[in-house]
Amino acid sequence: MEHTIEHGEHAGGGTKEIVRVTVILTVLTIIELLLGFWMIGIPLESTGLRLAIKGVIVILMLAKAFYIVAYFMHLKHELKNLIMTIVVPLALFVWFIIAFLYDGNSFKNLRNTYDPYYKEQSMKKVEKKEEAKPAAHGEQHDVQEAKH
């Protein structure tokens, strides 16, 4: 009967591992921020590039989530039974994300196709910033300041 729980038994790498994971998390965050800063300078029109950067950021986000759950929350060093109990239900998210985002996008397309009034309203620039071209950051900024 092994009913006693031996803590320290399923130990990870100890302090060395904590330092390693901290460094990884920091580096991943810095890369995310660099990508974020890079994206500021990219005009809205280059949709593909912006989407690609956002995709990379999401992948880095998932990597960070993995390191936090696996090492800080110690899940990697638990028994496989516990890992599966926690991780398998969360796989539902894969379907949730695909289904809901696809549905949202479809709703946008339907409205833009069949609701001309909505489309016209959502394409109308707000008066105050008539001269400001989209993605001209300095100007946009001035206009927003002037609003207050």
């Binding site: 998210f93 809901f100 985002l101 549905d103 949202g104 996008n105 946008k108 409205r111 959502s122 900024h141």
Partner: peptide
């Protein structure tokens, strides 16, 4: 996911770099 759905269903969205500056 609800936030993402609404964002996907809307034509425009604010630029976070302008809002949180």
């Amino acid at each position: 996911i609800s936030y993402g759905t609404i964002r996907f269903s809307t034509n425009g969205w604010p630029d976070p770099n302008e809002v949180f500056k």
